[in-house]
Amino acid sequence: MTGTAENTGRAWVYGDNVDTDLLAPGAYMKGPVETMATHCLEAIDPDFATSATAGDIVVGGKNFGMGSSREQAAQVLGILGIRAVVAKSFGGIFYRNAFNLGLLALVCPDVDKIASGDALSIDPAAGKIENLTQGTVIATEPVPDHLLNIVGAGGLVPYLEKKIKGAA
């Protein structure tokens, strides 16, 4: 399953330490999360929130999502239609929140090989990213089934809802 439209997205590449305040600016905390989403990453890239389209992939360096435990940091990326975040490492609470809110987070040591705008096709279960623009393949840590199931359901709450109501 390579190169199909369903699992291909454009890369938005950023550096190390993209923090929760950049993703979910505190100034918009009281308003609806949809409004906050339109300000996601605006401090480092004003185009991101307006130009990202469904299926795109955010690429970060070390410690992506560091900072507070606010779940909105992952939630706003989901609202903008981001399919996955690929980074060298993640802030721990962000990593958990991402899966719980239905966003894929992939640990990848070779993110430096990805350029902004590259078309990427990801296979989280196998642990690989195909860079269609450069014609290369890079490895990620594979995501275990359990977490893929949560993301597949759209997050922890819908996942549990299915499980509980399905069993009833």
Partner: peptide
């Protein structure tokens, strides 16, 4: 953990 995690 965050709130969704805790709910789980």
């Amino acid at each position: 953990v965050g709130a969704t995690d805790m709910a789980g």
